[in-house]
Design a binder for these strands. Structure first.
Lengths: 343, 343
DNA sequence: CTGTTAGCGCGTTCAT
DNA sequence: ATGAACGCGCTAACAG
């Protein structure tokens, strides 16, 4: 069976296209019998108005583009989940694109999406750090294009748009304070995101917490790592060099791996070394011991992004004034940290 | 800055729309100076052809719809990853929709997607089991609509289309055989997907493996569970009742939870009880001990789906004859099973 | 070289 | 009660 159009139906009954259109929309202008016979035929042939034609007519696609660096990362999936949920409720579809942390792909995706395919864009930009001027310009084009844009998590200050960000400073502070409160003296940081602002903010919070207790900050306790690094090897240095009794791992997988290595080396978690990880996902709950984590509420971030964006699209929000919403984190206490001693 | 169209540019220079179109496409029909001035203007104003208009013109959107029951399930994310990868390489975008295991949502999504928004569909249907006739009809409409469809994992026999499925029978067989080979005598199954064909196939493989060893099948060893069930409570029955030394958990999260409970009850894994889980994801590698799993190669499934679908769309495949591709599983041996004893 | 016309599929005037 | 005409933004065939 071929895809059927108004034209086909019109030909079938020897009437005009507009008559068919009106009949299908149950217009009172059309006689009852013509209406019913056309409607019956349309239903029998599964007529459905061509979305693309309507999009063109309405200059709106009722869909929003989501651009994320990585879909195998549970945090982004959670955000996507939140976006999809709200979008769906409000009658929008999602076009999701993954950039694989590649600037070039991100540029291409933006280019593609910003030419009418979507009514708005939600993005977590790879380029949040290594800000090429060219790329910045690229994103700005999107904004100039009059297409609403919401950035989350990895945002760029130089772009004027709505933003939904995590209070990473507070997260770092909170986690550090908790380790301190539970008796840790020397806290190391394993930092797999050393080049990002997010990483810097978390370390900022860490420093702040130390300062409050008059503990000197020691640069050597901070270890930046890259994906290709041998974590086991790196940890041996850290563990031998200092008398560490607490570790902050700035993402979930690093937290999990770090704990595995530490346990294998015979340390007890949390008695010898306590660990807190960032970005609560699926893993931390089921490892042994279950990891204490900083949760960023990915789904909530997604929902917030989607609501803000759709408000913009339907211009409920006041135009021109952009807002940056800061989402607080919370500490999910499990068994990789010692219990807090009251009194 | 407003979105700019050919018409706007034409007005700007007092030429016709088609001249502008040709100039922008660098047609040889247009004089060099007109071309260059138009091109310059277009670039300055970030002109980009309206995708929607082109879609209407070409009767193609260069995008494919993906419908999955759950995006927080790592298997589906892996499939999505594979699809996205291939689609991207071949110049297609993804519109992803989540049905939350709801038949109604799936019907709505299909309805929405099949009216011109996408060139083809990849779906894992919630309805693969509780096949309402109405719903079947609904999916069949899509097929009738002349829009290419590929089903994966949870497929429906009654739908005629390309399919990519997992060899679940073999998976059940393989896992059971491995437990048997490593000395297990009494193997229980925890089945969180008791209503699906997939679950039945895996159990079929299990029975087959038992039969090969002349072990009688005991219905009581199979325990169906529902999401709301108290696994701890259920396991106490199973463990008390039988002298179980091996467990097959038919999905990852059940495997992980089951192992946690078993360990908490003082059993040693794998010496007292060995465990194999299905659907290898992120979790199983990092729990202690690391779980032996059956991998379904989600990403590969996704790639296969996408390639098949795009071939169909571009009608490289021979039309009319549908293929069902069966993807083999593999056993990833880790530490929740005993070592195989050679000789 | 440039412009006119037509049409993708639809809904919305405005005539008849 | 029905139909013709128009336009959404674009390309392509054809005319000048």
């Amino acid at each position: 069976m071929k895809k059927i159009t108004l034209k086909d139906i019109a030909a079938e009954f020897g009437v005009s296209v507009s008559t068919v259109s009106k009949a299908i929309h149950d217009s009172h202008e059309i006689s009852t019998e013509v209406k019913s016979k056309i409607q019956k035929f349309a239903k029998a042939h599964h007529y459905r108005p061509n979305k693309v034609a309507l999009n063109l007519l309405n200059r709106s696609t009722k869909s929003i583009g989501v651009v994320i660096p990585d879909i195998l990362n549970y945090f982004f999936v959670q955000v996507l989940y939140g976006i999809e949920k709200v979008a769906n409720e409000r009658g929008y579809s999602i076009i999701s694109c993954v950039t694989d942390h590649s600037l070039k792909k991100e540029a291409m995706t933006l280019e593609m999406l910003s030419s009418g395919s979507v009514d708005g864009l939600i993005i977590s930009s790879v380029a949040s750090e290594r800000q090429t001027k060219k790329h910045l310009e690229n994103i700005n084009n999107v904004v100039d294009y009059q297409i609403p844009l919401v950035m989350f998590d990895r945002v760029m200050d130089a772009i004027e748009c709505d933003k939904v960000i995590v209070d990473d400073f507070e997260a770092g502070y909170k986690a550090t304070k908790y380790l301190l409160d539970t008796g840790c003296k020397t806290i190391a940081i394993i930092n797999p995101m050393s080049k990002t602002k997010i990483g810097r903010l978390r370390i900022g919070g860490y420093k702040r917490a130390l300062k409050e207790r008059d503990i000197d900050f020691d640069e050597k306790l901070i270890t930046p790592i890259e994906p290709q690094d041998d974590l086991d090897f790196i940890l041996s240095f850290i563990l031998n060099d200092k008398n560490i009794d607490g570790i902050l791992a700035l993402d979930e997988i690093t937290a999990v791996k770090t704990m595995g290595i530490i346990k294998a080396r015979g340390y007890h978690v949390p008695n010898d070394i306590a660990i807190i990880g960032f970005t609560n996902g699926q893993l931390s709950k089921y490892v042994t011991p279950a990891l204490t984590m900083v949760s960023q509420h990915g789904s909530y971030i997604g929902e917030t992004c989607a609501n803000r964006l759709i408000d913009r699209i339907e211009s409920i929000s006041s135009p021109g004034i952009f807002e940056a919403k800061v989402v607080k984190t919370s500490l999910i206490v499990r068994d990789s940290t010692r219990k807090i001693t009251l009194g």
